[in-house]
């Protein structure tokens, strides 16, 4: 196993208030890592540190070391555009652009300067297939992406991220707004995708974590309580707090 993303001593402050209290996590290549924990524990906040989406918020300070390979994500020389192409993101609410399916998926490439229609066609088809939504949209590629169901929209969003070929895909509760059938489809998709990508997923759904994640990190009140192989964590956690949370005896 090779490590692809390494964070050390992560602190995050909203103004004076400290929201993440300093922890280390290392993510392995071609694995799915799940971040679980109660609402407000800081898992989404941490996820957004990884592609610097927290930079958008005023008054937010992030300290610590974030390294992809041996490059520092927070180095002043980091090109945000490049970084976010390397580390893609899928959000809780499906957020396709108000364009056609085709244009949604092709958008990132077009911005990157790809004009060749053949290349675009290929990538769009491949990405939609990888996201397991091709069969449902292939006859309507010119239809507005917003006219599809929530589950389909979310998979179109995944295809949009895949099209720019990121190394890592961050997912912020990608199935929490979807029905169980759509969620199951997305979970299957993720298991396929980890052959080519590294996935870090925030989820409220512990069954989901146990089904798809290789490793799981349990967070509580801005601290990392336990980070372990998923099988180990769900059967025999090291910490009492983890056990309590997983057994619903929390709080």
């Amino acid at each position: 196993m090779t490590s692809i993303l390494k964070t050390e001593n992560v602190h995050l402050y909203y103004g004076e208030k400290e929201a993440l209290h300093g922890f280390d996590i290392e993510f392995e290549q071609n694995e799915i890592t799940a971040l679980i924990g109660p609402s407000g524990c800081g898992k989404s906040t941490f996820l957004r540190c990884l592609n610097r989406m927290n930079d958008l918020r005023n008054n937010t300070t992030v300290t610590g070391s974030f390294k992809i390979g041996d490059r520092d994500i927070y180095a002043p020389t980091t090109d945000m555009t490049e970084l976010r192409k390397e580390i893609g993101m899928v959000f809780q609410q499906p957020n396709p652009f108000p364009f056609s399916v085709y244009d949604n998926v092709a958008y990132g490439l077009r911005i990157a300067g790809v004009k060749d229609k053949k290349v675009l066609d290929e990538v769009v088809e491949k990405s939609l297939k990888q996201a397991a939504v091709w069969d449902e949209v292939k006859d309507d590629l010119n239809k507005n992406a917003l006219s599809f169901s929530g589950g389909q929209q979310q998979r179109i969003c995944i295809a949009r991220v895949l099209a720019v070929k990121p190394k890592i895909i961050l997912m912020d509760e990608p199935t929490s707004a979807l029905d169980p059938i759509s969620s199951a489809k997305i979970e299957d998709t993720l298991l396929e995708l980890k052959k080519d990508f590294t996935i870090i997923i925030v989820t409220h759904n512990m069954q989901q974590a146990s089904r798809i994640a290789d490793k799981t990190a349990f967070m509580l009140n801005g601290d990392l309580i336990e980070y372990n192989k998923t099988s180990k964590m769900f059967l025999n956690p090291d910490k009492q707090q983890t056990s309590d949370y997983l057994n619903g005896e929390f709080g």
Partner: peptide, 27 residues
């Protein structure tokens, strides 16, 4: 226009200007 659209654009590596002119303005 939903802030989700802004995040989508930025998370895809678009600059702020490109996000505005390419996505927010059309919407």
């Amino acid at each position: 226009v939903s802030s989700l659209q802004r995040e989508a654009g930025l998370s895809l590596g678009l600059s702020q200007w490109k996000t505005i002119t390419g996505i927010i303005l059309p919407a």
